[in-house]
């Protein structure tokens, strides 16, 4: 089966990122596929490359990155939700004349349409609320 997942919660404000990550691993272990993981609302903060995780905790951004690399899962971040929360890639930093950018390279900024597209082409949709 094909799954599409949405993560609405931010690291350190909600358990959603960790729950979603563990669930995603189990989906893949069971032989199903994940077409896209969509980070929306405060969930966009999962994609910051500037968060420094305490050594005894799981670096969730790095885990997402590994999952994406090993299983070819797309990590899609809602561009509108991201920009207003300070998650920016190089192109957007240039466009808005910002001095910095911080989107982790494993993630991609996309429009909301990408989520609707993932949702309607999946067999199952699971939302991880904050």
């Amino acid at each position: 089966m094909k799954f599409a997942l949405a993560v609405y919660g931010a690291p350190y404000s909600s358990q959603a990122p960790h729950t979603a990550y563990n669930f995603a691993c189990s989906v893949l272990q069971a032989g199903h596929s994940i077409s896209r993981i969509f980070f929306y609302h405060a969930g966009v903060l999962n994609a910051s490359s500037l968060a420094v995780t305490p050594q005894d905790e799981l670096d969730i951004t790095e885990q997402w990155s590994k999952l994406s690399r090993n299983h070819d899962v797309e990590l899609a971040v809602c561009i509108a939700a991201a920009l207003k929360r300070g998650i920016v890639n190089k192109e957007e930093a240039t466009r808005y004349e910002l001095g910095q950018f911080n989107l982790h390279p494993a993630f991609e900024l996309v429009g909301l349409g990408q989520w609707v597209d993932a949702m309607i082409s999946a067999d199952r949709v699971v939302v991880f609320g904050k």
Binding site: Y40, H41, W115
Partner: peptide, 17 residues
């Protein structure tokens, strides 16, 4: 927070599709 507003934006996008 802006969740309510952002959610309605998502609903409109499903309408576009």
């Amino acid at each position: 927070g802006s969740e309510a507003f952002e959610s309605v934006e998502g609903i409109l996008m499903a309408g576009v599709f």
